[in-house]
Amino acid sequence: MEQIVNLRHGDGGKYTNLLIREIFYKHFDNKLLVNSQDASVFEVKQGKLAFTTDSFVVKPLIFPGGDIGKLAVCGTINDLATAGAKPLYLSCGVIIEEGFELSLLEKIAESMGETCRKTGVSIITGDTKVVEKGSIDGLYINTSGIGVVQGEYCPKPVCEGDRIIITGGIAEHGTAIASERYQIEVQGDLQSDCMSLNKLVERIEKYMDRIKLMKDPTRGGLATALNEIAELSRLGIHLLEECIPIKKEVESVNQLLGLEPIYLACEGRMILVVDEECETILEEIRQCDGCEDAAIIGSFVNNGIRPMVFMETYIGGRRIIGSLEGEMLPRIC
């Protein structure tokens, strides 16, 4: 095979087939995909299905702790997980720029395959397009996912006093991308938090009747996600700055770059809204791999005015946390 992707790899003929077989089939390997024609056919149990789609244009394609492939699989799985669904199948559409290195494409496909295997999800249909050099920047991926809604989970009305849990350190994905983009060499542990959350949701399934809301704070970060929740619940959110888990490395890089961690994306974290008796749920979450730093970061208050998020700073001051306005770091996922 050649070293780079050519326009003929996208013409639907022999070379397209070669690319699909030698790269995508090889790493996504599953019968539904390999045996499918124009569409994959599968059976489902009765119940509610969840369906979602997301496109990934992250730059750089490979970053500390992940790559666009892992992100594309985890991102869609996590969207399903926040709906309380067990992810079953994914689709994968790739748009490749002419001249893209085949070895890099294979590395990304391999990473997607590996992430799927780890999470027990299969990519069962896909599409490949190649476009002229200069019309896109390298590689874009779209994944859609379908899952079965599990147990008792459905969003419930949020009340005054309800607690907010974050399942781990914030801003790690956004900071890893920023440090890579601005070539800041960091000593210590600075990696994207990119990971699938379906195992976490399975683990806390027994508490679903007490979980009122789940949301993954991706673009716009914790601040934007919490503002959406405040708006939805018509309640205020009182955050405690000193309780928000954040790695030292993340804090330092953001200080250096003048970025606000609270607005930077997470790709492997979940915000949960639970009732006041949430210690057992928190303990359960902390048992999950990658969620050791989970913490209760605030609660809902009825401040009588419009719903807003405010933070009690670590010296006791107060400030309002608005939604993200204006781009901070483009092409983060």
Partner: peptide, 9 residues
């Protein structure tokens, strides 16, 4: 000063 919410204190 703003980030710490100093004015509120």
């Amino acid at each position: 000063i703003s980030k710490l919410g100093l004015r509120s204190l």
